[in-house]
């Protein structure tokens, strides 16, 4: 059965109702030989129109829901589809192997890369072992180990972002969650190889940024990137969980908003209705984008790469500030 039927978002309900009705009518034709072809055709037309109406006008909050969709393709699913060959590598050599961040090596066409990404679970059980994609410091330190390896072997880094945030827990704090993220920001800003960052689902604040500094920042069409969750924002600002939708809009967290703000470099299209509706197509779109960026970055001298990276972040939002006199 289609995965999306296992989990329906609120705004998808009218579509499901129509789909069910069509199914019902089709059954009628089969079982009782009643000819309802015309009605079915009519309903299918309505379904198509309704789909377009809903999916071409998604609100920021609806995109947040799509970005968090349980059936949305996760990092390892995409890695498997994108790379011709790949190998996962484990552990930070300091404390443990964080399951919420995965790292490894991969090959696509003639390109060899080091990849890393947050990993959410496909099931409740896996989500518990993956900690819902919320990393501890050792996840960031494992990623840093792989960045060093990439630098040593002159391989570009591709990073997949999909996390609600870094884990807010006692041990995470005691082992230096903030320091682990901060160290990565410094490392990535000086890394002597190209870094391509792709936000595939949720870009949750510092936890996302901890493996998310790079030369090219791309987002899947329905991915979101935010400094705080809409729920957290609504709670802090208005102390009102009815204002989540308003908060989602105010935070400017969609790919379209962030492209307009010049924070990201590009948007990777998703199938209509979201990445979960056609995972293969989504992976293929990501692969094309990675290949394009790798080609563009591979001849750039290291000094220029690092300088451009620094200037890129330095310029962000500058045009939005008020210049005095």
């Amino acid at each position: 059965m289609d995965q999306r039927n296992r989990y329906t978002l609120d705004f998808e309900k009218p579509l499901i109702e129509l789909e069910n009705k069509i199914q019902e009518l089709m059954g009628l034709t089969e079982k009782e030989g009643i000819d309802v072809k015309e009605e079915i055709k009519h309903l299918e037309m309505r379904l198509k129109n309704l789909e377009q109406k809903i999916f071409l006008n998604l609100t920021p909050w609806q995109r947040v829901q799509l970005a968090r969709h349980p059936a949305r393709p996760k990092t390892l699913t995409l890695i498997d589809l994108i790379f011709d060959e790949w190998l996962e590598l484990h552990g930070d050599r300091l404390f443990s192997d964080d399951q919420a961040i995965v790292t490894g090596l991969g090959k696509m066409n003639e390109h060899r890369v080091v990849w890393m990404g947050h990993q959410k679970g496909e099931s409740i059980k896996e989500n518990l072992s993956r900690n819902f994609g919320m990393a501890h410091p050792e996840g960031y330190r494992k990623a840093k180990r792989l960045m060093n390896l990439a630098e040593k072997c002159s391989l570009p880094v591709v990073s997949f972002i999909d996390t609600p945030g870094a884990y807010p827990g006692i041990e995470a704090e005691q082992r230096g969650q903030a320091e682990a993220i901060a160290a990565n920001l410094e490392k990535m800003s000086q890394l002597k190889v190209p870094i391509i960052v792709i936000i595939i689902g949720e870009g949750g604040s510092g936890g996302a940024l901890g493996i998310g500094v790079g030369d090219k920042l791309l987002m899947l069409e329905n991915a979101v990137y935010s400094v705080i969750s809409p729920e957290g924002c609504a709670a802090i600002l208005w102390d009102d969980q009815n204002k989540i939708e308003e908060a989602a809009s105010a935070l400017k967290l969609t790919a379209n908003d962030l492209l307009k703000l010049d924070i990201i470099d590009g948007i990777i299209p998703e199938p209509q209705g979201g990445a979960q509706r056609d995972v293969g197509k989504t992976a293929n779109n990501i692969k094309k984008a990675i290949l394009r960026e790798l080609e563009a970055l591979r001849t750039m001298p290291v000094e220029e790469l690092i300088l451009r990276r620094k200037i890129g972040y330095r310029q962000m939002g500058k045009t939005r500030g008020e210049e005095n006199g």
Partner: peptide
């Protein structure tokens, strides 16, 4: 929070 992801990007900027 009021500056959204732009404020997050300041972390990258300062770290660089």
């Amino acid at each position: 929070m009021q500056e959204g992801v732009l404020s997050l990007m300041q972390m990258a900027k300062v770290s660089a």
